[in-house]
Simulated scan of single mutants.
Amino acid sequence: MQVSVTDAKGQLTELVRRAEAGDEVVLTRHGHAAVRLVPVKAAPDRKSRRALLEAARVSGSSKATPGPNAARSQDFLYEDDGLPG
């Protein structure tokens, strides 16, 4: 639903309720969309953040593939005497 900013002043409480219920509420200024009212998502608690991070860690470690040792990864740039090749 679209409502002008002027009209929204008198019905802000109702518009907020509708936005919280999932209705798209767009406030317009001079006939052009200016802002959208959307409900605020609840911040995740500590336990759910930790679970998300743990899931990402497990997923990442299961996808990791063994590769060359990072300490030796640029050896191809240098000759046997240690100078750039």
Rank of each mutant, 00 (worst) to 15 (best):
L83D: 13
D45F: 07
L27W: 04
A34T: 00
V35L: 05
V26D: 00
Y78K: 09
Y78R: 08
Q74G: 06
V16I: 15
V25H: 00
A56Y: 05
V25F: 01
A43G: 06
M1N: 13
K47C: 01
S73Q: 06
A21C: 08
L53A: 10
S62C: 02
K63I: 11
T6P: 00
G60T: 06
Q74M: 08
K9T: 07
L27M: 15
M1S: 13
S59R: 08
T6M: 09
A34H: 03
T13M: 11
S61W: 10
P44F: 04
G85L: 03
V3H: 04
F76P: 01
L27T: 09
K47R: 12
V58F: 02
L83A: 14
D80W: 09
D45H: 09
A56H: 06
V58C: 08
A33F: 00
D7P: 05
R36V: 10
D7S: 12
N69D: 15
D75M: 11
A56I: 15
A43K: 08
S73D: 09
P44Q: 06
T28Q: 12
T65C: 02
G22M: 02
K47E: 15
A19D: 13
A42Q: 10
K9E: 06
P84A: 14
Q2I: 08
A21W: 05
A33Y: 01
G60E: 00
H30F: 13
A43Y: 01
L53M: 10
V40E: 09
F76C: 01
P44C: 01
D23F: 02
L15N: 07
K9I: 08
G67K: 04
V58A: 14
T65E: 05
